[in-house]
Simulated assay, not measured.
Amino acid sequence: MLNTANLTEIKNEEVVYQNPLLFLKIWEIKHDQPHFGIPEPWTWHWHKQVEFLVVTQGQLGIQTKDTYTIMEAGDIMVLGSSQPHRTYKHSEAPLHQIVFQIDLTQHFDLSTLAYLHLFSELTHSLEPFNALFRANAAVRASAYRLISQICEESQSRQIGYELAIVAAIKQLLLLLLRNDQRGLSGLTEDSGISRLRPALSYIDEHLTERITVEDVCRILNLSYHYFIKYFKKVMGLSFIDYVNYKRIKKAERLLLTGDLSIMEISYEAGIQNMAQFYKLFKRYNQCSPKEFKLRLRDQTEVRVE
């Protein structure tokens, strides 16, 4: 009987993105030695990123705080953000697996934000997608192919590999969306986004300024309490979280394309408090603004070599 009670010793695993602009890490693990079984100690770990596990050969045992599963070749499992889990080689046969860790929230722009709340886990778990993988062989095979493609592109790094990876990620999200068994797809009504569009445009145009809920309520002629509830229902995240998300995205662009100082970038993004800026930037990127620039530079140097 597996012990699910001891969740106190959990390692917070830092995920270092292979490309800081793609917000993902993907690699293949091969265990060809005959040794198998639960290790001692069998430690838990978690990370902010969503994780897809794909078994290409052998058997993988995996335990979360709620379930214990033996994955076979061809199986796929998705682990939600910050979900504790631990794995082991379950049989003597070689075990080959693909581990795909990604910040899904970074792969939505203004044209697709209507679907962000279906994957952001703020209100809905990703766990039902595992039932979809188990029940629908066609969906499982398509997801397997897309994740394998992302892994191959990440390893080969041929020209345009970033475009290929982004396209495959969008196809994976679309696959899950159109086969969603949670019955949530109807929540993403265009009428809701259309009603909020003046507010979204106002936010984009005034990011460098102080933006309040009251300002946007006046534009939409809505009461404060109705607006904040309606905004979260339609967008899947709170008004404040959305504004912060847009500000950090602007800061990222400024870090990549300009020569402004960190303080100037913070001000340009509408965040006057430097401590708050660093805190928000690290929340979305798991690194400081300076580290973000250094990682991009290192990535570029690797590509040149």
Score class of each variant (00 low, 15 high):
86 R>Y: 03
160 G>A: 11
136 N>S: 10
134 R>I: 11
288 S>Q: 13
30 K>R: 13
100 F>Q: 06
267 Y>N: 05
272 Q>H: 12
136 N>A: 09
160 G>S: 13
209 E>P: 02
243 V>H: 04
33 Q>Y: 10
206 H>Y: 01
151 C>M: 11
194 S>E: 12
223 S>N: 06
247 R>I: 10
73 A>I: 04
124 H>K: 01
241 D>R: 12
80 G>T: 03
219 I>Q: 03
156 S>W: 14
280 L>H: 08
169 I>R: 03
4 T>D: 03
20 P>D: 08
209 E>W: 05
237 L>T: 07
292 F>P: 02
58 G>V: 03
301 E>D: 05
76 I>Y: 01
6 N>F: 09
17 Y>Q: 00
206 H>Q: 11
69 T>R: 05
92 E>Y: 06
294 L>G: 00
89 K>H: 08
234 V>E: 14
188 T>D: 05
19 N>Q: 14
126 L>F: 09
270 G>N: 10
245 Y>W: 15
111 S>K: 07
132 L>A: 14
124 H>I: 05
276 Q>S: 12
132 L>I: 13
88 Y>L: 03
45 H>F: 12
85 H>N: 01
186 G>L: 13
271 I>M: 13
217 C>L: 03
171 Q>W: 00
51 E>G: 01
128 P>Y: 07
73 A>F: 06
34 P>K: 06
264 E>N: 10
164 A>G: 01
209 E>Y: 13
123 T>V: 06
235 M>Q: 13
105 T>F: 10
280 L>I: 04
68 Y>T: 07
299 Q>F: 13
156 S>V: 15
216 V>A: 11
261 S>T: 15
42 W>Y: 12
131 A>G: 09
193 I>L: 15
98 I>G: 02
300 T>V: 14
81 S>E: 04
79 L>G: 03
13 E>C: 00
131 A>L: 15
278 Y>F: 09
10 I>C: 07
270 G>F: 08
14 E>Y: 08
82 S>V: 05
146 L>E: 11
212 T>L: 12
141 A>F: 10
36 F>S: 12
123 T>D: 12
262 I>D: 10
131 A>F: 08
125 S>K: 13
87 T>F: 00
167 A>E: 14
145 R>T: 11
171 Q>P: 00
100 F>M: 04
227 F>Q: 03
89 K>Y: 02
68 Y>Q: 04
174 L>Q: 14
139 V>S: 10
